[in-house]
């Protein structure tokens, strides 16, 4: 997952925040790491001020995507 090249993206107007899971306008979010399939993941700008929550939520997200990535690899081999 860590070396994935993001695919060319389509114009989007809103995005789901990986921290609070709300769908919000693109103007309210920032780009973080990637989904297991290489899509860009986002989080609300406001969360960045919640210092530890920001860090821990992204780590939980990354761990989940890593598991998904490994699961996908397993499925494609099988």
């Amino acid at each position: 997952m860590t070396d994935s090249t993001p695919p060319p993206h389509q114009p989007i107007a809103e995005a789901q925040c990986v921290i609070c899971l709300q769908t919000v306008p693109l103007v309210s979010v920032t780009a973080g790491s990637l989904y297991a399939d290489g899509r860009q993941a986002f989080a609300c700008n406001g969360h960045i001020h919640e210092r530890l929550r920001w860090v821990l939520a992204w780590l939980a997200f990354d761990a989940e995507q890593q598991e998904q990535h490994e699961h996908n690899l397993g499925s494609s081999v099988a």
Binding site: P8, H9, G32, N45, I48, W54, V55
Partner: peptide, 30 residues
């Protein structure tokens, strides 16, 4: 739609470095 453009507000250099230090680890992971 080649790139994402994020205009980030940071009223002081202290706030800017805080924001950058929070933001950078996730971006460096990719």
């Amino acid at each position: 739609s080649r790139w994402y453009i994020d205009v980030r507000s940071a009223k002081t250099s202290d706030l800017m470095s805080f924001d950058l230090a929070q933001h950078l680890p996730r971006r460096l992971s990719i």
